[in-house]
């Protein structure tokens, strides 16, 4: 049963763009999210394996920064190492991206199994977490994932950092200029498929969405829905 996205109070900045591609929406975390784009699930899964772009803005995410943030996160049961610009997968499917010594983004999983983002949001308070402050990533940052074997080559058109898989390891982070916009690029392979998570300023989501699709066109890249990403494993 198709959902009219405008009946939900929360929807991605990109929902009109996705409608243009015939997206079918479903509810994720109270957001209208594009579950499929196009009628053929098998074709869409194949698209995701070659070159697909999917809006993950409905998924849970939360940010923290401050000189004592690593200590506070560790005290909340988060597993971390010292090296910045690395993503540290947690046992329950959540991932914690360490952007610097004191700044972190916590990303929920596709299925919504992990309770970590909500748990951290509930545990944090100004009084209890000295030296650790909230960054409203859920309200300020858009989240896309770009999947498929052609991803490394495509990024060469829009990004100065070499993101090809043999140069940019899985769980690596590049915080850089992407199509002239500041973005956090995280390699986040799904199953055997090369994938990159992109977290960037929400207000420019429509611009970057269009710029990426334009760059992807040369490689046959297209938007895909959440179901196709889930199917990658």
């Amino acid at each position: 049963m198709a959902l009219n996205p405008s009946t939900l109070p929360a929807r991605s900045f990109l929902y009109r763009e996705l409608q243009k591609f015939g997206a079918v929406f479903g509810e994720v975390n109270g957001y209208a999210s594009a579950m499929t784009v196009g009628a053929d699930a098998a074709a869409e899964a194949a698209q995701a394996r070659s070159l697909g772009l999917c809006d993950l803005s409905a998924l849970k995410r939360i940010g923290f920064k401050g000189w004592a943030t690593a200590e506070w996160l560790t005290s909340q049961g988060v597993t971390l190492e010292d090296a910045p610009n690395r993503v540290y997968p947690q046992g329950d499917g959540a991932r914690v991206a360490r952007l610097s010594k004191g700044e972190f983004v916590v990303l929920g999983d596709l299925e919504g199994r992990s309770t970590l983002p909500d748990r951290l949001g509930g545990a944090w308070s100004m009084a209890s977490a000295n030296g650790c402050f909230r960054v409203p990533r859920e309200d300020a940052s858009a989240w896309l994932t770009l999947t498929g074997a052609e991803g490394g080559a495509m990024f060469a058109k829009v990004c100065g950092v070499d993101l090809r898989p043999h140069k940019f390891p899985n769980n690596g982070i590049a915080q850089t200029s992407l199509a002239r916009m500041n973005a956090i690029i995280m390699r986040a392979d799904r199953g055997n498929t090369l994938a990159y998570d992109l977290v960037f300023d929400l207000a420019s989501a429509v611009y970057l969405w269009g710029a990426l699709l334009d760059a992807m066109a040369e490689f046959g890249g297209k938007p895909v829905g959440l179901d196709a990403i889930k199917a990658l494993g």
């Binding site: 910045p84 610009n85 610097s100 100065g160 950092v161 590049a174 915080q175 850089t176 200029s177």
Partner: peptide, 17 residues
């Protein structure tokens, strides 16, 4: 393009600085 070595992020285009 000039490359600047960022202590946090490594070598990057000068336009990022």
């Amino acid at each position: 393009m000039k490359i600047i070595n960022c202590p946090l992020n490594g070598p990057r285009n000068a336009q990022e600085f």
